[in-house]
Design a protein around this nucleic acid. Structure first.
Lengths: 214, 214
DNA sequence: TAACTACGAGTGGTCAGACCACTTTGTAAT
DNA sequence: ATTACAAAGTGGTCTGACCACTCGTAGTTA
């Protein structure tokens, strides 16, 4: 009766029990969990079963293991999960085109949101970028990221970040004079809250990038 | 030399190799993977290592195992994935508001795309929906899903699907007369390719839903 | 011939024990 | 006190052995 159970998925039970144990023992982030051997004994299962559960949690980024040291509760805000899922979900069945399009959608929406925002304290941000642009000290990515951050949608930011990573685009390559000018105009119209102009300029920028065979 | 390697985390390697194998062998969703014993031999590792990788993927909901039968590639839209996503990614750091906003962004973009599309064969789809609306045989979700599908961005569709599930909104609840009318107008302007009008109507619909305390 | 039964092969689920590689710690020699 | 080294502890992996379950098939029966 001990070595088995009618229902399969024992390791899922262990995952659950591990979570409870972590909670009960009040293991802090970065804290150490009991050793695999000890867990096996306490939970009355084989070590391999414990390992399967631990490995799963590790792949999720919930715990971190260091050989010779032990298993530690990690900060689960790490991106492990996201990256993993992205490789599975985004793979192939999703064309590059879709990734581009969706990324652009998020960027446009951020611009639209900012145009309707009334937070004038942020003007200094765009002014600063305009200055930087004239002195060649800034990348596209920095600007766009700031735009999305300022639009204040963390989820959109996460997704955008993922897509950017996945697409692996040359977001940091050199900007041409034309491109800089478009950005300066775009940031300016952003300050003015001119949605139509901003979107129009964004589209112009897209065309510029297209011509460069991104 | 075989039983070990300088770098730890062998099972992570296996996870990666499994992904490649799935891809190379063109395993379809629902398709069967090689048995654990066969995988162990092919990848030149012990069965326990293979298991740790498989169990991890199972917890992610990427594969499904049935005792006595085998391991199968599962549809990621099922089970845990959404829950896990909601638990670890969307949770807390992401507010409901962001989920709504992002979902609406995707929906709007689909509408915009359709307005610029020139595929007139799809008019029949919207005509059909208009008829259904007048006879109360269709839900918001059906319409919106069709819009996004027709906009032909599979990635956006996937993300939208995830967000919809997470938000758990009453996408299927009864539609009021007003709401139906808005949709009919929206679908009509969609046929005409009138972007401004379509977006305006969409925003009108959002207001309607707001008033209902979604 | 058709339907049923029983059995064996194949597969996932689990366990125990054995090493290996690495880190920490404690102890002994300097 | 410092250093060097051995031992204990821990994760990483492999092997072989069962168990529980599914499924196809050979053999039996109606």
């Amino acid at each position: 009766m001990n070595p088995k159970n009618n229902s399969s998925k024992r390791f899922l039970e262990i995952v659950k029990q591990l979570r409870e144990l972590i909670h009960q023992e009040n293991v802090a982030v970065g804290g150490k969990l009991p050793s695999e051997r000890e867990l096996a004994e306490r939970l009355q299962v084989g070590r391999s079963t414990v390992r399967e559960a631990l490995r799963s949690l590790e792949l999720l980024g919930l715990i971190e293991t260091r050989r010779g040291e032990g298993t530690f509760l990690s900060d689960f805000r790490k991106h492990q999960l996201v990256e993993l899922l992205s490789t599975f979900i985004l793979q192939e069945s999703t064309s590059k085109k879709d990734v581009h399009k969706t990324r652009e959608t998020l960027e446009k929406e951020a611009i639209r949101t900012l145009c309707h925002s009334e937070n004038y304290t942020k003007h200094s941000i765009w002014d600063a970028f305009i200055v930087k642009l004239q002195h060649e000290e800034v990348s596209r990515e920095d600007i766009i990221r700031e735009i999305i951050i300022t639009s204040n949608n963390r989820l959109a930011l996460k997704i955008w970040f993922l897509l950017k990573q996945f697409a692996g685009e040359p977001y940091r390559s050199q900007m041409s004079i034309d491109e800089k000018n478009v950005w300066i105009q775009l940031l300016t119209s952003l300050k003015n809250g001119d949605e139509l102009m901003s979107i129009s300029l964004y589209n112009e920028w897209l065309l510029l990038m297209d011509r460069r065979e991104i």
